[in-house]
Design a protein around this nucleic acid. Structure first.
Lengths: 219, 219
DNA sequence: TTTTAGTTACTGACCGTTCAGTTACTAAAT
DNA sequence: ATTTAGTAACTGAACGGTCAGTAACTAAAA
């Protein structure tokens, strides 16, 4: 007798608020393992549990979706790093280590790790987006790192180095690990001992930049 | 009076031997600034001075063209590095420096610089190719660098370090410079002083790994 | 009932691939 | 030397599959 009044689960629900985030998350996964051009919006939609048309309710185009993805996901991480540096009271060496590890925790070992690789791959196709990313992520990240190095120099912990170069050299091993690991993880039977890699980088870098020759040993 | 016997420049020439290389070169340029999926074979053909159909006389498909590109261009560079290391007689520090600079000369500042970035971008779409590249370029390059480090350790020049990690840390700044520079050069108003960057990396790295604390200064 | 989030079916452009035809070249025959 | 028959490199247009984007419709919510 439940024929007419039967409360079936509706075939879909209206969830205007949740959709954009879900679609972005799905887009991140899809773009991450196929790249921009090779991923189909239908695939993004399926991962997000909607259909293609729905994506167009929230994003103007595939390109707009990609841009939103880059803009919304990665900038907050930089902001968080800046906040950590702002509030930090310990030695600059410890701050350096803290920031490196935090970056790995927030980006390197999460799905966000795909963003730098995506951006590097697609920079040529989206010049304005590349510009935005370079300004708001790369440059801002470098500024943060440079300010840390400067703090160390002012405190007498670090040698007076060329800030621009020293900054790039501090970031490069981390960024390359993020990017290359994402790309080649399947090809590495031996795995990639990231912890040891980061440990050694921090150790070696601090050893190189520190005024005291012995004190680079980690706490 | 040359109307009938006039030697006009022919619309095209038969140049069976030169074509494959020319097409590969065109493909490198095209793929380099658009990525695999986004470049049209028509564009490759135009750059090579032929038409689309001609490409198919020499390559089975777009994918085959891409694979040939990767295989033929980058492997020789590694081989050359191995030859240099084999023949080298000086100090390991000098060998290290020589190899780093040679890699930059042969790859970093040539059109080959696009290959690592391309491979990183497309690894997900071409698993077997990624495997090939990882085996024949990455691993082989790492083996070369590891052998250099081992040489230094045996000679008492270098500390006894974890070879796998130390190798990756030696390569990472170079690789990242190659990849990121290609991607963001347009966005860098300040430019990228590669010479200084490499100098500092060599200096810092050798300083970190050398047994003698002072001798890292370059000749 | 009205509104609107969401679906479904469709379109049109794009591009990899194919192939019939054309042109450059080669060498045998005159 | 000139003609001519034969070959193979190369062209260009057309085909067909794919997919971003759209419009007509449906059902959930208000």
């Amino acid at each position: 007798m439940r024929t007419l009044t039967k409360r079936v689960k509706p075939r879909w629900r209206r969830r205007k608020n949740a959709r954009p985030e879900e679609i972005l998350h799905a887009a991140l996964e899809a773009f991450a393992d196929r790249g921009f051009a090779a991923t189909k919006l239908e695939d993004v939609a399926r991962r997000a549990g909607v259909t293609k048309g729905t994506i167009y309710l929230y994003f103007d185009s595939k390109e707009a979706l990609f841009k939103a993805l880059i803009r919304e996901t990665i900038v907050p991480v930089i902001a968080q790093g800046e906040a950590i540096a702002q509030a930090f009271t310990g030695s600059t060496r410890d701050l350096f280590e803290r920031l490196v590890r935090e970056y790995w925790r927030l980006v390197g070992e999460t799905s966000l790790a795909s963003i730098p690789r995506l951006m590097i791959a697609e920079a040529g196709n989206f010049p304005e987006l590349a510009r935005f990313y370079y300004e708001e992520v790369v440059t801002r990240g470098h500024r943060l790192m440079a300010s840390v190095l400067e703090r160390g120099i002012k405190a007498g912990e670090f040698k007076k180095v060329d800030l621009a170069v020293a900054t790039k050299l501090a970031m490069a091993p981390i960024m390359h690990a993020v990017v290359a690991r994402k790309a080649f993880l399947h090809c590495m039977p031996e795995g990639f001992d990231v912890v040891r890699y980061l440990d050694t980088h921090i150790d070696l870098y601090l050893h190189g930049i520190s005024t005291t020759s012995s004190a680079a040993a980690r706490a």
